[in-house]
């Protein structure tokens, strides 16, 4: 396996009034293609910041985040948009689906943004919804789904453009045990099928125990 994305002596700090508080200092690590990395640590230790840096949503104050040989911090706006659309997928604790749209439309969104034709996007979205066992809910509005179902929609959405890296921020933090198991089973199965690298920020030891590697902060 080759390196997909790496942190090279990355430091990041937040402003708190007149002071700066460092949350990450000279952090270096590598994520291989298809690797499952779990990040754990107490609140405020910088877990979500690492995800933001990996997604290119924040730029490190020193050091570099390198994706396939190119510094993410140097991406232009269009390159970053392409990166977020095609290379990286994100799963959030609170799902962040668009409530006015149907399940199918939510799943199709990244493909449509990426310029895929509506028919192709629809076909692929239906396949993914079948994978997450939500085929019967394709026309339902998001608000009518349970938390577990919404997260499965988010998982289907994240895979539609076959990203090489999935970043998940406490994806089961808002779910009960049954839903957690189901969501993680689906996420891991689909990741393996697609050969996608997965970075999960979690407090859940069961989830971190499934990971190939663990980053404790």
């Amino acid at each position: 396996m080759g390196s997909l994305i790496s942190f090279e002596k990355v430091s990041f700090s937040y402003e708190q009034g007149s002071k700066r508080r460092k949350v990450i200092q000279d952090l270096s690590f590598e994520i291989q293609k298809g690797e499952f990395l779990a990040i754990t640590g107490p609140s405020g230790s910088g877990k979500s910041t690492i995800l933001s840096l990996l997604a290119g949503l924040k730029r490190p104050q020193s050091g570099k985040v390198v994706y396939e040989g190119k510094s993410v911090g140097d991406f232009s706006e269009n390159e970053l948009a392409h990166y977020l659309n095609c290379e990286v997928g994100m799963i959030y604790q609170f799902f962040n689906l668009i409530p006015h749209l149907s399940v199918l439309e939510n799943v199709m969104l990244p493909a449509l943004i990426g310029g895929v034709s509506k028919e192709d996007a629809r076909r692929k979205a239906l396949d993914l919804l079948a994978d997450v066992k939500l085929l019967e809910k394709t026309k339902s509005k998001i608000a009518k789904l349970s938390g577990g179902q919404q997260q499965r929609v988010a998982i289907a959405r994240v895979f539609i453009n076959n990203p090489k890296l999935i970043l998940a921020d406490e994806p089961t933090g808002n779910l009960d045990k049954t839903s957690t198991d189901r969501v993680m089973e689906m996420l891991c199965r689909m990741r393996e099928n697609n050969g996608t690298a997965l970075v999960v920020v979690t407090h859940d030891k069961d989830i971190s125990s499934r990971a190939d590697s663990l980053l404790s902060l």
Partner: peptide, 10 residues
């Protein structure tokens, strides 16, 4: 915001 996070150019 969701669309931006999904890669739609601002």
């Amino acid at each position: 915001a969701v669309l931006v996070a999904l890669g739609a150019p601002k």
